[in-house]
Design a protein around this nucleic acid. Sequence first.
DNA 1: GGATCCATGCAGCAACGCTACATCGACCCG
DNA 2: CGGGTCGATGTAGCGTTGCTGCATGGATCC
Lengths: 301, 301
Amino acid sequence: MDPRTLETLRAVGSQGGVTAAAAVLHLTPSAVSQQVAQLQHEVGVPLTERVGRGLRLTPAGEALAEAAVDVAVALERARAACDEFLERPQGVVRVSAFQSGAQLLLPALLSRVAAIDGITLECSDEDVAQDDFVALTDRMDVVVAHRPDDGPGWAGGRAVRVVPLLREPLDLAVPLDHPLAQRTEVRPDDLRDLPWVAVREGFPVATVLGAVGARSGSAPRIVHRINDFHVVEALVEAGHGVSLLPRYTFGGGARVRLVPLAGVRAGRRIDALLRRDRAERLVVRRVLDELRALAADIGSA
Amino acid sequence: MDPRTLETLRAVGSQGGVTAAAAVLHLTPSAVSQQVAQLQHEVGVPLTERVGRGLRLTPAGEALAEAAVDVAVALERARAACDEFLERPQGVVRVSAFQSGAQLLLPALLSRVAAIDGITLECSDEDVAQDDFVALTDRMDVVVAHRPDDGPGWAGGRAVRVVPLLREPLDLAVPLDHPLAQRTEVRPDDLRDLPWVAVREGFPVATVLGAVGARSGSAPRIVHRINDFHVVEALVEAGHGVSLLPRYTFGGGARVRLVPLAGVRAGRRIDALLRRDRAERLVVRRVLDELRALAADIGSA
DNA sequence: GGATCCATGCAGCAACGCTACATCGACCCG
DNA sequence: CGGGTCGATGTAGCGTTGCTGCATGGATCC
């Protein structure tokens, strides 16, 4: 019962299959399968059960996978205990963020961390569906994710730590020459019959537009579904519709006008997601501190 | 950084040397040395330092060893999590006890556990100095140990769990025809100038006689040092001196007379000592429950 | 100052876990 | 309803790891 094997089981559970787990662990499916089989033999209770052509964890498997994170946490804590005796934290930290979050946070984060000697940041942007953010924590140390203000929290339970970074309002984006462009705020009533550019179903903040529509009394008329906010911005600029855009990230530009919404709560929460064991690493904690400080700066500016 | 290596470091610390650690781990000193060297290389800080011809852990080593027990605990908890899904607990539990404790507790414990299917008890009696009880936990699952009533607790800190089992009074043991044999109790004053049979220096309850002597106003006159209470009993019976004997263990016999002490607190505490990781095992917990119930019976009888 | 004890380095060997490939079952689609 | 595909699982072979056995170098005890 070594932690590697336990971690493999955990990955099979969280990734939902042998092949997917093998991918994040940089192993062949065969190796993963063998590890699970060996673990199963060791404990004497079935840990997985076939469902269709894939498989999922049994209750016993879930229990063991949950215990596995505690093992991983204990191990990382052991490493950190030694790092305390090293004068400077050292190592590489992998950070991912959704695009607009990356644009908002990563440049400043890199600058801040560059000042700390010994820490290497590996950044990447990841555009995934709302439900897939947690799964990223298997490949990344810190996952910057966003979700609707009022939506449900993150799945993943005890295994993943959620660190709130920022709340960012979503404003109405209109062309510069739009009738609403000169307003200091708009109310739900003003939004009737506007042509909307929305994000794809299932993607973050997709539900916000629905909530706004509900307040205005009629379902919003969605004419385009675009995930990349820059493309959205270009479409809005060209008069192909209006949209909701995050204030801090797009408020500075001159291509479209952002008008605050009143009478309805529209915003997104930006959180950092980490696996509990990764959160124990000294360097990760250090980077996370910078990220939080950075977010606090933005939020209070 | 695997738990095996961590456990090895822990053993080096608790056993106080490579060779001793190798003994309890069933390895060669060479293997232990290599593991420590590898671990040291991995964390980049010195974990051990030479002292004389042996070695001890550095502060960093101590920190890592302490973290190692948390890893072990987490691992055992993972095992236990699976065992919950097995219908019956199963496995072997190694129990050791000092002689008189073994005599008092082990027969009844074996009977109780025999009624539970699947648990195998491996008992052994261990006569060690007071300070060496904790080190036994590396070889045993449950160590039944005793210490003076008022003495200091057990060393070992966070790594070892102490489960109080019983307080056993120590009575004055005199020959059947001794002047004090008919008394219902004796006071410290009555003990002046008696020839004492004591246990060897450094062994459990050695300090109790000193405390009694201090109350009587003069240092007790020790004529023999015997560790085995049965030998003590025989000496007392033959009139070669008086002694302190535990009430529950030797009260029933007709070879000597036990007279309670008044005016001075004399007794020993009987505790179960376990490593925290071992304490997580389901079977160990089960055996420990029986042991506690058994001790409660004796204490209340 | 010789004997002893302890930790450590090095060569050799066994075992373990991985990859690559083949197989089998379940789903999808024409 | 059958070919194609995807996913999990066995098997052979190989590389790596970690152990033992022995030799070495210090430090202590008598």
